[in-house]
Design a protein around this nucleic acid. Structure first.
Length: 551
DNA sequence: CTTTTGACTTGCCGAGAGTACG
DNA sequence: CGTACTCTCGGCAAGTCAAAAG
């Protein structure tokens, strides 16, 4: 409609926005006097600010990273900033600090929480529900919408992922004077807590956030935004998949183009073309440059270094094999050996010439150059669209290949999960094997064994009673067979999923309409594929996709 | 042009809610 | 009815990418 078009055209995201502002972290509660901190073996009463920071460390004492040098160094430096001059002069060595009493106190506290009576737990639940009702919703353009994260992050010690140079630094407490509120001029402006003021109240309908503040570790801005079920997020999500579908229409042209570019006279074009080939074929991320020393050393495609690939002209029975080994987003290792076209291989050899291991593989390329090129190839095309496109097309193709019409429902679910798994592997979505994995596999096996003996018992009974109650016993063993089958499917699924995380691709890369269509086509209840939150997020797709939808 | 900032998506993990089980 | 396991959901870090600033 015209209004919608106008909004898009002028970049406004809403006309009316009203909300109650954020919920702050609860204030610090000082330790009871009986809980001691010891320095150099002697008890020492800390000032409230120093004590608070000490409790952050105490709460993490069990974790391995409190033993790491960088963590301890960063923590100690920031902790000292919170100390009084006296404390500062006395506490000079972290190794002489004993937090164990504090740690034990917190452990007991959390134990006590678990042991609370049903009534007490209910009371807490009700209070949370009340806060949710009050602060968890906003009005955006005539609709009541759920807010994603309406609570401000509490203070604590920063723990980045991987080898983060800033691990252990103090993440400071956010106060009202740090907060920027964004809402309509004509809405009820949220009130700052008594005696405080917001940093700023603005009325910017070119953005979707309701609240923002600047975080002190990286100096980046944090936002409070709407829940994925909201109109504004849903439309954006839908747009994303439509862009990926447009790529589907011209991907052949683009592939031919970059294959041509492998032969270009210009180095920058050949580098661009090889990088794009990796992004397309291997679903690598773009790989922005990162400031050294500010974050963990991770890379994506454009930021790959010489040390991250190895070339093998021959490997076993394959030619022109490239071995990738690097840390990607969240310091997750990407390891892959793939045979490539001879031209790609020759190009890579050329890119490596006269370089040190720590030099950039693509020295004439960055994400900005790449995305500008992509934009010229297709409106709205960027590196990440390839991930979305390849993920979704893989799911669709795998579902077609793996689903058998007359399979049972559990068998079809297994097929679905396998298709999903193919995507997760492509996108390198890994997880640490669950701590209880072996145990849980064992439990499942026990259930299978039980079921199997149940089945043989039932079959014996059937034989014995063949003459009279044939029908009912036959039905009984059939039911047990089904249950057994279901358990076996579950076991296979779980085993195959040991180190693979399906959630990320399901939530971010797979056009939900593919899954909805598949469910409709094979009569699978959508609940088997999407849980409640996911159904809320994908409501738009559940509404619109028919059984013949094609990505 | 390069660098920085801002807004938004993507990603893994752990706490605790929910559920099955003895 | 408590315990043990599973699953969901939120937390928040870490990416992408465009636009503004220098």
């Amino acid at each position: 409609n015209v209004l919608c078009w106008l909004e898009t055209y002028y970049g406004s995201k809403w006309r009316f926005l009203e909300h109650k502002g954020p919920v702050f972290a609860p204030p610090y509660e000082p330790m009871p006097d009986k809980v001691k901190f010891f320095y150099d073996g002697k008890p020492m009463k800390l000032s409230a600010p120093a004590e608070e920071v000490a409790t952050f460390f105490a709460k993490m004492l069990e974790h391995e990273y409190t033993t790491k040098d960088i963590f301890r160094k960063n923590f100690f430096k920031d902790w000292r900033k919170e100390m009084t001059p006296e404390e500062k002069s006395k506490i000079t060595d972290l190794n002489k600090c004993d937090f164990s009493d504090m740690s034990a106190f917190f452990k007991a506290q959390s134990e006590a929480r678990k042991q609370m009576s049903k009534e007490e737990k209910q009371k807490i639940k009700e209070e949370n529900e009340r806060i949710l009702q009050e602060y968890g919703f906003c009005i955006m353009d005539n609709h009541k919408e759920r807010i994603g994260n309406f609570r401000i992050e509490p203070p604590g010690l920063f723990r980045g992922r991987g080898d983060h140079p800033k691990m252990g630094m103090l993440k400071r407490r956010i106060r009202p004077q740090d907060i920027i509120i964004n809402c309509s001029k004509d809405s009820k402006i949220p009130k700052a807590p008594p005696g405080t003021k917001w940093k700023e109240v603005r009325h910017d309908n070119k953005v979707t956030w309701l609240v923002s503040w600047t975080e002190n570790i990286q100096g980046s801005i944090k936002y409070i935004m709407l829940n994925p079920s909201s109109r504004i997020k849903g439309e954006k999500d839908w747009q994303k998949y439509e862009t990926a579908r447009r790529l589907k229409k011209c991907v052949d042209r683009i592939r031919n183009q970059y294959r041509e570019d492998w032969k270009s006279k210009e180095m920058r074009i050949r580098q661009r073309a090889v990088a794009l080939y990796f992004i397309d074929k291997l679903a690598l991320r773009a790989g922005n440059e990162k400031e050294e020393g500010e974050t963990a050393d991770t890379v994506g495609c454009c930021s790959l270094r010489v040390e991250h690939i190895k070339l093998y002209p021959k490997m076993d029975d394959q030619e022109y094999v490239v071995e990738f080994d690097f840390l990607g987003k969240d310091s997750i290792r990407y390891y892959n050996k793939i045979p490539v076209e001879k031209r790609v291989f020759k190009n890579l050899q050329l890119f490596l010439e006269n370089k040190q291991p720590e030099d950039d593989l693509f020295d004439r390329l960055n994400t900005s150059i790449l995305n500008k090129h992509l934009q010229e190839l297709m409106d709205g095309l960027t590196a990440k669209v390839f991930r979305t496109y390849n993920a979704s097309i893989t799911l669709q193709q795998q579902l077609k290949q793996l689903t058998t019409g007359d399979d049972s429902v559990p068998a079809k679910i297994l097929s679905y999960n396998r298709a999903n798994r193919a995507v997760a592997i492509l996108c390198n979505h890994q997880r640490a094997p669950p701590k209880t994995f072996e145990k849980s596999m064992q439990n499942l096996q026990t259930k299978i064994d039980d079921k199997q003996s149940q089945l043989s018992t039932a079959r014996k009974q059937l034989k014995a009673a063949k003459a009279d109650h044939k029908a009912s016993h036959d039905e009984k063993s059939k039911k047990i067979e089904e249950q057994l089958m279901k358990l076996q499917m579950q076991a296979t699924d779980r085993e195959e999923n040991k180190q693979i995380a399906l959630g990320t691709s399901k939530l971010n890369y797979l056009d939900p309409r593919i899954s909805v269509a598949w469910c409709k086509k094979y009569g699978i209840p959508i609940e088997k594929i999407y849980n409640k939150t996911q159904r809320e997020k994908f409501a738009w797709a559940i509404d619109m996709a028919e059984k013949d939808y094609e990505f």
